[in-house]
Amino acid sequence: MPLILEAGQSAGLQYWRDLWRFRELFLFLAWRDVIVRYKQTFVGLAWAFLQPALTIVIFSVVFGMLAKMPGGGLPYPLLVAAGAMPWQLFANILTTTGNSLVSNAGLISKIYFPRMIIPGSAVVVSFVDFLVQTVILVLLLLFYRILPDLQVLLLPLFLFVAVIFAFGCGLWVSALMVRYRDFRVILPFLIQFGVYVSPVGWSSDLVPEHLRPFYYINPMAGVIDGFRWALFGNVLTINWTGFLISLTVVCGILFSGIWYFRRTERTFADVI
């Protein structure tokens, strides 16, 4: 079957077929990023640990010890860890995917492949980082002698939602950054802002009941709640309505992200 190139032609099924055809490139790019990240093993691994570990220490001191916020019956470091880990995952994915197109400009202007492979493969590195970081969580659980209940099996579901949310935002930011480099500056600011509106260092119980529907428009609130509930369901509860609100927003961001990415993709090579 001949391949036809016309203005506006790359739309449609062909694109998704190509995406499948280039799956090996996806794996290779992900593999490259992981190898490069951990090439100087000591530094790479140390950072993967240090960043969340320090966040946990600082938040526990500031929110738990100084501000004396309620831990909902949990040791405060555990509450923070269960919030900081999914948050860190989200923030890392968003940063790497957001910058991914611009940092692979050379590839984009020289070789054809469905561009979504680039932000896609950037997700993998951050996820590997996350897997390494789970060691911290395990150590804390051992230290406080807490054994999660059966609902811990739902943990991957919440992780999945976090990844999808980050990927959806990443699609938006990466595509926008190709044209507007301003997002390189905006992105860190957005992430910093997000730490405080998401329940990373505190418990969602603090949010007044009538504000909850708005509060869960931030999907990370739903994800972090879910994450905590999956780990400590015997102590905490989850607001399922809130989670559904979050889930709806995630789907909206993902699909609009795909739409915008696909719409601008064909001009990437011209403007990057």
């Binding site: 391949l3 036809i4 190139l5 032609q9 790359s10 064909r266």
Partner: peptide
């Protein structure tokens, strides 16, 4: 021809 960018008009058929 190598699909890095799209034409504004016209068509390419590749076998």
């Amino acid at each position: 021809l190598s699909r890095i960018t799209e034409p504004t008009s016209g068509r390419v058929t590749i076998q």
